[in-house]
Design a protein around this nucleic acid. Structure first.
Lengths: 222, 222
DNA sequence: TGGCCAAGTCAACACCTGTTGACCTACGGT
DNA sequence: ACCGTAGGTCAACAGGTGTTGACTTGGCCA
């Protein structure tokens, strides 16, 4: 705590144990959730003393905060045609889920830990939201009409709140991750990557750019 | 033995405390998850002694099993037109989520507790699966009016595994519940009931009866 | 060489957990 | 009256938790 060193020298002893703690913490938090992942178990995984965890991270909550730091690394999708947005984003989500245990740790913990839930909320508000805003901004240039109160025009897509779209995407993305990686619901866990993208893609596309169905009118969603 | 009959008014003394324990347990499990919901806290809520919980339910796991017993009470949707299936099922899910805390308890616990996860898996396999099976059986006979354009193959729907459909519905249903009731993601929590049904309805409908995005243009070169 | 300080060890604290067993109390049947 | 028993209370156990503080090691610089 005394030195938040700026030197990125690879060999420092403390940096290696610090990294070992973080790796072990991510695995434990991802596998067990916040309360069942004990500092003692994490320390044992990293083959260090539990007191070291306190020395480096202060307390359990700060350890989790450090272990669950996460960036969705959302790509720029504004060049893609509309109907491929969902598939591309779904594919990206699958990459992020399978490439980094932090997200699984964050999901498991956010169900019972308020700090983790806060971070989850912020993740979608601060990262997914802006991406969607940029997306609809680039597609709105085609219509280029004033954003006045007329709700049921051709521009109906942009009349939906960006945050709402982000929230809807979150419901499908987190729900899929929950069923596939946490609950391991067999039919969802057994889905191939291509099947998953094929099923979720249109859903995500609609949440990103579409409109809700207005009553019984909905005829075709393709 | 004789206790099954006379429990409407007043009832046996033990039945009342038993019910009080179950109610308190459901609330605590729903609010805190499995590990943070302590027997002592549940007993305090029910204003009884912690030892009573053990007397009536044996141990914490059995208490949870009793508190999280749940029936989705899925309605018979086979009379509805295809495109309204999703909205009807979504509406029913909202009712169940908001009318009984058991589901919230089950969701929160299933993320960290294996017994709860098992029950969650069984819930969708044993209750939602059969309902979809009945659904696709009835529509296969009735929906032979091939005038509705746009579909490529009439039998394409039934070629998808029923369990897969149930799993997909689970991803959206649980994801929505997670975001709305557990994480309280603002844009999702603030959705009105009608908005929620309008957004989720088409998604659920497609998972119930539709096909993955093979019908539309496939830009996937894998 | 000698000292210094980061890095690591060890044992303990205070608290909370599920769970247990011994004890008390009300009360209906005989 | 008696007493058996269902229902309830109480204090404690054994183990696990996050966290702390005093202590020891190891390697670098003057």
């Amino acid at each position: 705590m005394t030195e938040t060193a700026a030197e990125t020298a690879g060999g420092r002893r403390s940096d290696r144990t610090r990294a070992a703690i973080l790796t072990a913490a991510r695995e434990r938090f991802a596998a067990d959730g916040y309360e069942r992942a004990t500092i003692r178990a994490i320390a044992a995984d990293a083959t260090i003393d539990p007191a070291m965890v306190m020395r480096y991270f202060g307390n359990k909550e700060k350890l989790f905060a450090a272990a669950a730091e996460f960036d969705l690394r959302l790509p720029d999708l504004s060049a893609l045609p509309r109907e491929e947005l969902g598939a591309a984003l779904t594919s990206h989500f699958l990459d992020r889920w399978e490439g980094d245990e932090s997200l699984k740790a964050l999901l498991r913990a956010s169900v019972t830990n308020e700090v983790a839930a806060d971070r989850m909320r912020e993740l979608f508000a601060a990262q997914l939201g802006p991406m969607i805003a940029k997306l609809s901004a680039s597609t709105a240039s085609a219509a280029s009409s004033a954003t006045a109160g007329g709700a049921n025009t051709v521009d109906a897509a942009s009349s939906v709140d960006v945050a709402t779209r982000a929230g809807l995407v979150a419901t499908q993305a987190l729900g899929f991750a929950l069923c596939r990686y946490v609950l391991a619901l067999p039919p969802v866990a057994n889905l191939s990557r291509e099947e998953a993208v094929a099923w979720l893609g249109p859903t995500i596309t609609r949440y990103l750019t579409g409109t809700p169905s207005t009553g019984t009118r909905q005829a075709n969603t393709s």
